[in-house]
Computed example of a mutant assay.
Amino acid sequence: MAKYSRIIAQAGCHIHHAEPAQVYEAWTNPELMKTWMFPSGGEKEADAEADVSEGGAWSIVNESEDEAYRAYGKYLEINPPERIKKTLVRKETGGQDEKITVEINSILNGSQLIVTQDVVFLHHEQLAEKVVEEHLREERLRTEKYWHEMFSLLSKQLTPS
């Protein structure tokens, strides 16, 4: 039988020369979302949708030759341009919601972006606690690395040439 364990991942960055409103727009405008949310890319242009209201749905799909990656959820809290809280569902979580909080702060020469994610790890209930803890640590590190890759793309998108 499947069991779920959770761990918190957190990543942040400084986006130079971008005001919080610009960063917020990149998180909520589907045309901008699909330009930076997939560091690994895909053969086709990503597709994104967003009903940016509390309870509104969002989704993003990126297709490669092998598979289509889909992430979706609902907005839980919208506080432009400082905060977005939403759920995230992806196939790796077996349909379990993860929570993502996006905090955008104005700082000298740009914005500070901090993302906190409640990461779900799906595993067999017989798996030893020590093994689960190691998998959770690896999942946290992988998630934080992925966020940093996305931040790099976001920064390139928002920083003037």
Rank of each mutant, 00 (worst) to 15 (best):
E43I: 09
Q117V: 11
A71F: 11
E25W: 13
V89R: 04
S53W: 10
I60C: 12
C13L: 02
H16W: 10
E45K: 03
G42T: 09
I78L: 05
T101M: 14
H14G: 00
A18Q: 08
V120D: 00
Y69C: 09
K44I: 10
W36T: 03
V61P: 09
L32S: 08
T28K: 03
A48P: 05
Q117I: 12
S53L: 14
F121T: 10
T35Y: 08
P20H: 00
R90C: 01
V119K: 08
A21C: 14
E43R: 01
T35E: 12
N105R: 15
A48Q: 07
A50Y: 13
G95I: 00
Q117A: 08
S111K: 10
Q117M: 11
E19H: 09
I84H: 04
Y24T: 12
N29C: 12
Y24W: 15
G73D: 07
E82N: 12
T101G: 12
G94R: 02
N109D: 04
L113H: 03
E92Y: 14
T87S: 10
A50L: 08
Q96H: 12
T35R: 12
K91C: 10
E43M: 02
L108T: 03
I100H: 08
Q96I: 10
A48W: 12
E67A: 14
A71C: 09
A57S: 12
W36Q: 05
P80T: 00
V115C: 06
I107H: 07
A46H: 13
E43Y: 02
Q112D: 06
V119L: 04
A26M: 08
K74E: 09
K34P: 06
V52H: 02
A26L: 07
D47N: 05
S106R: 07
E43P: 00
I84C: 03
Q112P: 01
Y24R: 13
H17P: 04
T116E: 06
D97G: 08
A18K: 09
D47V: 05
E63P: 12
R70H: 15
P39S: 05
T28F: 12
G95E: 00
V89A: 01
E49R: 01
R83W: 07
L76D: 08
V61C: 13
R83C: 06
L108W: 03
A21S: 15
K86I: 05
K44E: 13
H16T: 11
P30E: 02
R90K: 00
G94S: 01
E82Y: 12
G95K: 00
Y69H: 14
Q96A: 09
V119N: 06
P39M: 04
A21V: 15
S111W: 04
C13N: 05
I104Y: 13
Y72Q: 10
T28L: 01
W58L: 02
V52A: 01
K74Q: 11
E82I: 11
P30L: 00
V89K: 05
E31H: 11
D118M: 02
E63Y: 15
N62L: 04
S106A: 07
H17G: 05
I114D: 01
E63H: 15
G94Y: 04
L113T: 04
N62D: 06
D51V: 11
